[in-house]
Amino acid sequence: MTANNPNNLHYIHHDILRTPSFSVGFRDGPIDHVKSLEHYHDSYELDLFIKADIQIFVKDRRYDIHDGDILFISEYDVHKVIYNTGTHYTRYVINFKKNFINELLNFLGIADLLINIQNRDYKKLRVNVSRINEFEDLFKTLYTLYSKGHDSTQITQGDNGNAENTALIKSFLLILLSRFYHALINTKPTFTQTTKDKIVRVIIDYIDSNYMILIDLDSLERKFHFNKYYLSHIFKQLTGFTIMEYAQHRRIIEAQRMLKYTNKDIIEICYDCGFNNIQHFYRVFSKVTGITPYKYRKMG
């Protein structure tokens, strides 16, 4: 099986989530059955887990999530959530796009804040007991502001008299991100990596750096000196994707980035992302995202 054969790959239409420029969600309730969800989205995500006993795989890192943890997930990072049955789950989740807060970051001279967070190898913060109320209050404030009868379009555009509310949301979001980052850089990561984790991380790093060339199981076996069926098994076990699915998704993620942030022609993006013809690129992109590359670019 090769990465260039779409008939051998499984595509999930709903695992790519297109989100508004800003949103806040809250969930509080029991988990009555085990769930596993793999997805990525075109926005950053910041989660506060008030009550949780779950695992989250973000790209090449496994996080054990417990009460009082805060986790940052970068845009387009594939992640998988594993919920444990019979447990109670309470969390706030914030999604926001780069363009929602970029102008404020630039104005204040801290344009690198998001980049600095994104470049951290470890993005989970175990909040000190003395500060948990401080962070929870910020999440609550943002949730309250977001819930004041304003839909995502109004928040994005600041129209219909909501400019003040939008400004408040951006201000509190900036405070939250800044405090999260400064707490994160002063926190020693607490995690353990198994041999399987390390192998999968090496494979993901390789795919992320070489998505533009042909990748297949035989070449990975030769490069990493592990049986290809073993590599396939542990990769699927830890990420929820087969190796070939991940490689194809990585190509589509890079195509999405280029469509969104560059003026390259679609055919140039096609070849830059490792596809050998434009028809194949359109077919795979549409299967994965639900829309064509042209429509995706028009959406901004």
Results as ranks from 00 to 15, higher is better:
residue 3 A to Q: 14
residue 14 H to G: 12
residue 14 H to A: 14
residue 18 R to L: 14
residue 21 S to I: 00
residue 25 G to K: 12
residue 35 K to W: 01
residue 39 H to F: 09
residue 41 H to L: 08
residue 41 H to T: 06
residue 44 Y to F: 15
residue 47 D to S: 15
residue 52 A to R: 01
residue 53 D to H: 07
residue 57 F to T: 13
residue 59 K to P: 00
residue 60 D to L: 04
residue 63 Y to M: 07
residue 65 I to H: 00
residue 65 I to E: 00
residue 67 D to V: 00
residue 68 G to F: 00
residue 69 D to S: 05
residue 70 I to K: 00
residue 72 F to K: 02
residue 73 I to W: 00
residue 76 Y to H: 01
residue 85 T to F: 00
residue 85 T to E: 12
residue 87 T to H: 08
residue 93 V to T: 09
residue 96 F to A: 02
residue 99 N to C: 07
residue 103 E to C: 07
residue 108 L to M: 10
residue 111 A to G: 08
residue 112 D to L: 09
residue 113 L to P: 04
residue 123 K to D: 02
residue 123 K to V: 04
residue 137 D to M: 13
residue 138 L to N: 05
residue 139 F to T: 03
residue 141 T to W: 06
residue 144 T to H: 10
residue 145 L to E: 04
residue 148 K to Q: 11
residue 156 T to K: 15
residue 157 Q to V: 12
residue 159 D to N: 14
residue 170 K to I: 06
residue 170 K to N: 04
residue 171 S to G: 07
residue 172 F to L: 11
residue 173 L to Q: 10
residue 175 I to Y: 12
residue 177 L to P: 08
residue 179 R to C: 06
residue 181 Y to P: 10
residue 189 P to C: 09
residue 191 F to W: 07
residue 191 F to M: 11
residue 193 Q to M: 11
residue 197 D to Q: 15
residue 204 I to Y: 05
residue 208 D to G: 06
residue 209 S to F: 06
residue 220 L to D: 05
residue 220 L to R: 08
residue 223 K to C: 01
residue 224 F to I: 02
residue 225 H to E: 12
residue 228 K to W: 02
residue 230 Y to T: 11
residue 233 H to C: 02
residue 253 I to C: 08
residue 254 E to H: 11
residue 256 Q to H: 02
residue 257 R to P: 00
residue 259 L to A: 10
residue 265 D to K: 15
residue 266 I to A: 15
residue 270 C to I: 05
residue 271 Y to V: 01
residue 276 N to C: 07
residue 277 N to C: 13
residue 278 I to V: 15
residue 278 I to R: 14
residue 282 Y to P: 02
residue 284 V to W: 05
residue 284 V to F: 10
residue 286 S to V: 04
residue 288 V to C: 15
residue 288 V to Y: 15
residue 295 K to A: 07
residue 299 M to Y: 03
